[in-house]
């Protein structure tokens, strides 16, 4: 079946085209709009974009396959990217991945059998100071431990639970991405107390938003 964008998104394409002197430059933004609507870049999407921008399908496939975030096959309802680059791995990135694999019942690179989650390994997501972290769909979840991670997965597993999950994302509590009260005390890893876990996963007050400025020195 032929693919087409919703009227609202079509209007967005028209607007995007005014940003550039060349139509081709709209390719990435238009692919994004299509993927948001369709979930992945299907062959029908490629045909649609080719027609809309006046490009050959070969050019579009070349671009789609170059970029990690364009999916050329269907993915689950939620896409979980677990960061495994050095800064995250130094703070337990592998433990996060192991837990997700167990919890979702699939290895990285695959989709859970209920189709709800695709688990993917990511390279550095620019959240190194708040490691370990995962990205789920548009949201970053940082300073994770397994308890917090489970709550996030629970929320995303519910249909329409994205809003609840977003409350746990860094952006709902951004600027205070620290949990160091607990980490600071950790020498040879002591078992964290109930209290410490509770404090860690609560959004810290916004007034402490800046950890920049060297004010803690």
């Amino acid at each position: 079946m032929a693919f087409s964008l919703s009227p609202e998104r079509e209007r967005q394409v028209d607007e995007i085209l005014t940003h550039y002197p060349e139509r081709r430059a709209a390719l990435l933004p238009v692919l994004w709009l299509c993927q948001r609507q369709n979930g992945w870049i299907s062959p029908e999407v490629v045909n649609y974009v080719a027609e809309r921008l006046g490009l050959s399908t070969a050019i579009i496939k070349g671009v789609v396959t170059f970029y990690t975030m364009f999916f050329d096959e269907p993915v689950g309802e939620n896409v979980v990217w677990v960061c495994r680059t050095l800064s995250c791995d130094l703070r337990g990135g592998k433990a996060i991945q192991d837990h997700l694999e167990k919890r979702l019942g699939c290895t990285a690179g695959r989709t859970s059998s209920d189709g709800k989650f695709t688990l993917l390994k990511a390279e550095c997501l620019a959240a190194c100071g708040q490691a370990p972290m995962v990205q789920i769909n548009d949201y970053y979840y940082e300073n994770l431990d397994l308890e917090l991670l489970d709550r996030i997965i629970d929320a995303h597993a519910d249909k329409g639970g994205e809003a609840a999950a977003a409350e746990l994302s860094t952006f709902a509590r951004f600027g205070t991405p620290r949990r160091n009260d607990r980490l600071a005390q950790a020498s040879a890893p002591p078992p964290p107390t109930e209290e410490a876990v509770r404090v860690a996963s609560q959004p810290p007050p916004a007034a402490e938003a800046s950890n920049a400025g060297g004010d803690e020195s």
Partner: peptide
Amino acid sequence: VRHDDSVRGMVEGAA
């Protein structure tokens, strides 16, 4: 001596 051992316990301990 894998490199996340020093913190792995902290991340896992909470679950």
